[in-house]
């Protein structure tokens, strides 16, 4: 029999007893909670992978971005069109002028005169 002077003291005694006897979780229950944690953690990893951009594999979008996007594509289209036009049209006037500059008589004739002495070497 426990001697107590008041009901309040009895209540404090019961609180103290309850505090000293917490509901201890069983190992099986702890394992169940930990299994939930593992499952949830695995879900985080899957979600991260799903949200991440593709690291490998061919992607037209990636190639487009690497080239510089729409502004760069505009320049590429223009350059390609000019190249095709130059390759498919006959530019005789331009060809004649280029030949004159590269192989013209005046330029080659000057060179022949400057180095004519080479022909006489070894004759003496």
């Amino acid at each position: 029999m426990r001697n107590h002077t008041t009901d309040e003291q009895m209540l404090e005694d019961l609180f103290a007893e309850a505090q000293s006897q917490p509901a201890e979780p069983s190992p099986a229950f702890m394992a169940r909670v930990l299994a939930d944690a593992d499952e949830e953690q695995a879900g985080f990893a899957t979600a991260e992978l799903a949200n991440a951009p593709a690291a490998t594999g061919f992607s037209l979008r990636a190639v487009f971005a690497t080239l510089g996007g729409w502004p760069a594509l505009g320049g590429l289209v223009t350059a390609t069109a000019v190249g095709i036009w130059l390759g498919t049209t006959s530019l005789t006037g331009v060809s004649d002028t280029a030949a004159t500059y590269l192989y013209g008589d005046s330029a080659l004739g000057g060179l022949n005169a400057d180095y004519a002495w080479l022909d006489t070497m070894g004759d003496a």
Binding site: M1, R2, N3, H4, T5, M10, D13
Partner: peptide, 10 residues
């Protein structure tokens, strides 16, 4: 329930 729970009066 004092007595039932093992508590005596002062």
């Amino acid at each position: 329930r004092r007595e039932e729970l093992g508590y005596s009066d002062a």
